[in-house]
Design a protein around this nucleic acid. Structure first.
Lengths: 205, 205
DNA sequence: CTTGACTTGGACATCTGTGTCTGATTTATT
DNA sequence: AATAAATCAGACACAGATGTCCAAGTCAAG
């Protein structure tokens, strides 16, 4: 019985061990590329506990594998973002919540991001990040409408800035120039400062 | 060959055409790497109007050439920064002035930066950027002392944030998501917002 | 002008990585 | 147990890049 309530539009019926291999490969790739952005297919295969030819059984080319890796990465971040419920509650709090959630994921994937910055055009990169970035749009626009986030620049720009700040926080942490303890706070205050609407006479409570 | 580590302070007496070749090569490399971060030595030679072997006459290895390219790039940015006089005048104005100056340079070198992000460790990268970054320190610390820039985070962090913002502005411009006209203003306001000291009880008049 | 530094053009060896193929073997499914 | 799918192990062709080398020619400097 094809109990195929599987994923997207292409439910290839594969054997169970094939499925296992595929995820082992993608995981291995993730692992290998994290430590070396130019990791070869051989190295990836090694980490996946698989022979190189097996990779080509499922991914016609290296590019295809990288695509799969990227899709998986973005999906995980998108998932985490979604679970942080960007639409719920106070704008600022929601933003902090979501930033923290994506933040944790990003540490794993910052090298994959680097890879994709290099191999994809800026346009393509942007397109593939949509599953993540689009989730921020309603949040930011709501905040803008409420006067909480600044409206003199586009929501798109705010998103770009946020991403940059999260990324730089990750970098500074890894470089040891920020301690584990202070990163999150630092990141959040800076992010908030960067996108908050200038307060002519806002009263804190 | 007892080649003692020749730094900038060891001006080998070369013939005039050698000097010419060297700068042609570095320029060609800059040009080639800008359009393709993985440009081969052959491609670089072609752009420099030189034969491949000539490159090896002056740079023992590809890495050495990349180092030279990087040094030149950072020196140019450092120069532009210096000329913007980071220490002069009102903190905020000085910062804007300096940011605009480096901003113009960065558009040329953002691909070189990418290359170095990949080939160098974060520590090494940071070290080589010192000629630029150190120039920001006095400016930012002065601003912090004046209460203009926020002091609840380190000046180092502020620098990292500024760099990220400049970089993202460059990216957004190239992607066409910001117009030539609005980039600079957007960048400046965001940068200022990100690092300005929070006004706890600023009163409107 | 003469010498030596520099460049050219090309050949060459070497290396690394990708992608293909094949035959033997294991494994999942029915 | 039978069958087909998947993996393994290893060889192979191919491409591209790096770095070396050399013989001949060109150019700058004394």
């Amino acid at each position: 019985m094809p109990k195929t309530k599987t994923t997207a539009s292409a439910p290839k019926r594969r054997r169970a061990d094939a499925e296992r291999s595929i995820s082992a490969i993608v995981n291995g790739a993730l692992e290998a590329l994290a430590s070396d952005p130019d990791a070869s297919m051989a190295e990836i295969a090694r980490r996946a506990g698989v022979v190189r030819a097996t990779i080509y059984m499922h991914f016609p080319t290296r590019e295809a594998l990288l695509d799969a890796v990227m899709e998986r990465s973005t999906e995980m971040v998108a998932q985490a973002t979604r679970e942080a419920e960007p639409e719920r509650g106070d704008s600022k709090e929601a933003l902090e919540r979501v930033l923290l959630a994506t933040w944790e994921q990003l540490s794993q994937f910052h090298s994959v991001l680097q890879i994709n910055i290099n191999r994809l055009s800026a346009k393509e990169l942007h397109r593939r990040h949509l599953p993540i970035t689009t989730q921020f749009v309603p949040l930011l626009e709501r905040g803008q409408a409420e006067g909480v986030f600044r409206s003199d620049v586009s929501a798109q720009w705010l998103i770009a800035v946020l991403r940059a700040i999260v990324h730089v926080a990750s970098t500074e942490l890894q470089a040891g120039r920020l301690s584990q303890a202070e990163v999150e706070q630092t990141m959040l205050t800076t992010a908030l400062a960067a996108i908050s609407s200038p307060q002519p006479a806002r009263r804190r409570r």
